[in-house]
Design a binder for these strands. Structure first.
Lengths: 356, 356
DNA sequence: CTGTTAGCGCCTTCAC
DNA sequence: GTGAAGGCGCTAACAG
């Protein structure tokens, strides 16, 4: 491709073969000002006279000029990009959270890069490296990072990190979530209070789900309930998983009064399986879900569930992040750790728990 | 910040306050080669001797060097970024498609930027401009762009664009999808064949959903069925929408034999509402869904639905895109228009339709 | 196989 | 209020 001189009068954008569009310099030439003035008129209008500003804006608009953020980012060492890591996009329990984070960040002028971590640890490391290469201004984690190397790498990236949906023991940086152990305990107590004695668990093979199950079982044992049959299913959560879970449970000869599920999607599958077997819910079999799917409130028969306010988590995540991003790079902001709590929803009572 | 000379021996990454990590130059110094050799060793290893390559890689690894893709992108005029526009992330009918696209692109070394378009046209334009500023190498559209200005802007970006889930009249560039008109016709015929005469529609206020409804009604009218009561609900699709839709329908005194829904989520809401009213499905009320939610196959009672293979669409989208991206910038690739078809699923029969 | 030179498009710093 | 010079980190093109 012919070398492009900024001195000649042809506009780079007029090149018929080359993809690159107009540059700041082209706009400057059309507006009859210097490139830096264009930059200021577009991004820091208060530094420029009104007349100049209008002239430049009009030129830019007419030419369809689109600023190159790669160049801008390189020069300022800011990308205005935030990466969000998600286990999977399909049927994600984090959908509301992600939506809220994106909404808030978009409003603040940031864009969002989604990384899918629901794969091998190796792929996760590669993904992390690739994402870090974009120099994101911040990172949000919803699932868990599976390797220590990954956590290390993230920490050494020296950018704000928010872990959502958990209050982990060893936070990388900031935390917005709730205690999964507490969820398990609360579910146990709630169901014990209602008189259930024969429990069963259908759960995904997910670290946090398993933590909830562990504390649920511990609490049950503290109340003399030793054996709690458990079906552990591979990700991802689907209605089919739930159906299979209940099938497995019944085929093994268990006859629980209540099934505790690791997600609302699983729970809906259990409901479907129960319905197709003619079991009445909750008379023959009660079902407890978990999550944030607004759908849980609208299935039939009505599902008891643990409601996590994913939208609120997302908003808090975004706020925490933006606070850090606004802070001067030197001053180190205070640590952030927000317990958003959760709510157990059933027909007889509703109470908010877990928030400090 | 002190100016950083590339001549002195301090490594830029050792700066304790500055965020930027090591650069190529730092790695070069440690490995005892020139910067360009580092670049080649990392990205085009076949151009470098094995010994040099190992030396460089080892240095980079030890230092935790992460290449700056902003700089790389600026230099090569390639971002290795593909933008995907989605109406919303929650409960999206496009989830499988997005997942498939991302999987394939990730494997090919691309990253994915998700843009949410389910907002005002103004916001959509702003979003598009912001995304284009990142200089993505390609763009995937799932929803529809709402303004002509947006379509114009996209077209003038001179990058590959794939529109998914539709075969629109005026494609911007490439197309992978199916005919929504054909879906409407096929649903009508399928249900007519089964003997239904009293129809109702519960649909989202979505352009493509409305197109399906329009052709459904046209086909019904061609068979003498003039009146088809229709509930049009605002986005997003939730179980609650479906429940409300059926409620509205019944309250207005309609008593359809079959309800055609614009998505499986809506359909599940209708099922829930029917169940809570003691209506048997499909004896008292048959329900037809639409979409790709694997869940549709597992609800109870079983749902008739139009299955769209979202994963396949996603794969085709990614392939089409990658083909363009691999092609030399000069040669213009052939137009792409793939009809992926759809399948009507019910208890009595299953037949694939629509594919050429 | 490896190095040198010269930008990519923008923004910071410092002048005017 | 505006402009000139230089650099952000990387890589194409050309030498050697």
């Amino acid at each position: 491709m012919a070398k492009k001189s900024n001195k000649d009068l042809s506009l780079s954008g007029s090149d018929p073969t080359g993809v690159p569009g107009y540059t700041l310099i082209d706009v400057a030439r059309v507006a009859g000002v210097s490139p830096i003035t264009v930059s200021r008129a577009l991004h820091r209008p208060e530094l420029v006279s009104e007349r100049t500003r209008d002239k430049v804006r009009e030129a830019a608009r007419a030419m369809g000029y689109v600023p190159n953020m790669l160049a801008g980012g390189l020069a300022t060492n800011k990308s205005r990009l935030v990466a969000i890591f998600l286990p999977t996009i399909a049927n994600s329990i984090f959908a509301d959270t992600v939506q809220a984070v994106m909404d808030r960040l978009t409003a603040a002028g940031y864009q969002t890069l989604i990384g899918l971590t629901g794969y091998s640890a190796e792929q996760e490391e590669a993904l992390l490296e690739a994402v870090l290469g974009r120099r994101p201004d911040g990172i949000v984690l919803t699932g868990t990072l599976h390797t220590e190397a990954s956590r290390q790498r993230l920490a050494s990236a020296r950018i704000p990190v928010v872990e959502a949906w958990d209050l982990s023991e060893a936070p990388i940086d900031m935390l917005v979530g709730f205690s999964h152990e507490q969820v398990g305990v609360c579910i146990a107590r709630n169901l014990l209070d209602k008189g259930y004695r024969r429990f069963a668990v259908v759960t995904l093979d997910d670290p946090r789900g398993l933590r909830r199950v562990a504390s649920l079982k511990a609490e049950l044992q503290a109340h003399g309930i030793i054996d709690t049959p458990t079906e552990i299913l591979p990700a991802p959560a689907t209605l089919a998983s739930g159906r299979l879970g209940l099938q497995g449970m019944l085929e093994k000869g268990h006859s629980p009064q209540v099934v505790v599920c690791s997600s609302d999607t699983i729970a809906q599958g259990v409901l479907a399986e129960a319905a197709s077997r003619g079991l009445r819910v909750p008379e023959d079999l009660a079902v407890m879900g978990f999550g944030d799917l607004s759908s849980a409130a609208h299935v039939h028969p009505p599902l008891s569930t643990v409601r996590v306010n994913g939208t609120m988590i997302g908003q808090q995540v975004a706020e925490a992040l933006l606070a850090r991003l606004r802070a001067a790079p030197g001053v180190k902001a205070p640590p952030v750790c927000i317990d958003t709590g959760f709510t157990i929803i059933d027909r007889s009572s509703t109470g908010h728990m877990g928030a400090k």
